[in-house]
Design a binder for these strands. Sequence first.
DNA 1: CTAGGGTTAG
Length: 347
Amino acid sequence: MDSALSSPSLNADSQVEKYVVCVDTFKVVLRLCKVGGLADEALMVLKKMPEFNIRPDTTAYNLVIRSLCEKGDMDMAKQLMGEMGLIDLYPDMITYVSMIKGFCDVGRLEEAYALFPVMSVHGCYPNVVAYSALLDGVCRFGIVEKAFELLAEMEKEGEGCRPNVITYTSVIQSFCEQGRAKDALSVLELMEVRGCAPNRVTASAWINGVCMNGQLQDVYKFIERIVGGGSVSMGDCYSSLVVCLIKIKKVEEAEKTFRMALSSGMKPDSLACSMMIREICSEKRVLDGFCLYEEVEKTGCLSSIDIDIYSILLAGLCQKSHSAEAARLARSMVEKRIPLRTPYVEK
DNA sequence: CTAGGGTTAG
C-alpha cells in the first residue's frame, strides 16, 4: 500500500492520463482497507487526500474511524473524530455509533457513556442503535442492574430509542453466555410484557448459551416455551440445537436430535443439514450421510444447503465403492447443475 | 459508513 501510494503512477503531480481522482475514488480504497482490516493504511490514505486537493467528507472519515475502532485503536479514532471539526465536518450518527461500539469493545465504557451528552449537544440524538451498542458493552462486562436500567431508560426516551428484538436478543445473548439464565429469562419476560416477539436469533442465542453451560435439560423446556409464543418455529429451534450439539462435540446426541426432528415432520434449516451430513461423513459413515441427505431432500428443505456437501458425499461414495449411490448422486448433481469442487474431481 | 448467529480442509 505504501509503495503503491508513493509510486509515480499514483501521485498528485502526475495524475494518470486523463482520469480524475475524486473523493469517491478514495472512498473505494478506504472501503477496501476497511474490509481488509487495514486501519493504519486507511489512515494513511486519508492523510494523502489533501495532496490531491480533495477534501475528505464525513463518509471518508467514518470509514477510517470504523476501521480504527474495529482494530481497537480508540485513541487514534478519538483523535480523528476531533480533527473532523478542523475542516468543518461534524461527526454524525454513524461516527458516534462506531465510537461507542469501539469503546465498549475495549472495555472503556465510561468513554462510551460520555459520548451521549456530546452527541445530543450537536443535534445528533442517540437512537436505538446507539443505545443498543452501549447496552451491549454494559452486558458483556456483566453489569446486570445497569443493563436493566438502560433498557428502562431507552423505553422512556421514546420512539426512536425503544428497545427492539435486536436489542433484547443481544442482552439475552450476553446473559446466556455468562451463565445468567435467570437474568436472561427476565429479559425474555420483559420482551413479552413490551409486546416484542422473540425471533429465531433470540432462540438461537438462548439455546447456544444454555448448551455451552451444560444445562441441556433446560433446553427442551425453553424450546417448548418459546415455540408456544408462536413467533419461532420448532424447526428453527431444533436446528440451532443440532448446530450447537455438534459444536460441543456431542455428535451422537446431535444426530439423534436431528433424526427425531426429521421424523416429527420438522424442516431443519440448511446449516443444520449441512453440518449434520458433513459430520457424519467425517466419521467415515458416508453411506449414512448419503441416506440422511436423501431423507432431507424429501422434506424439500435442501434448496440452500452448502453445495460442498454434494462433492464430499460423492467423493466418499466413490472411495468406498458405493457405485450405485454415487451414480444416483452424480445424476442429481448434473440435473441440479451443481459443480464438483475441484479438489474432488480426480476422485 | 448504519446493531444480532451458526459451518469449512480430499
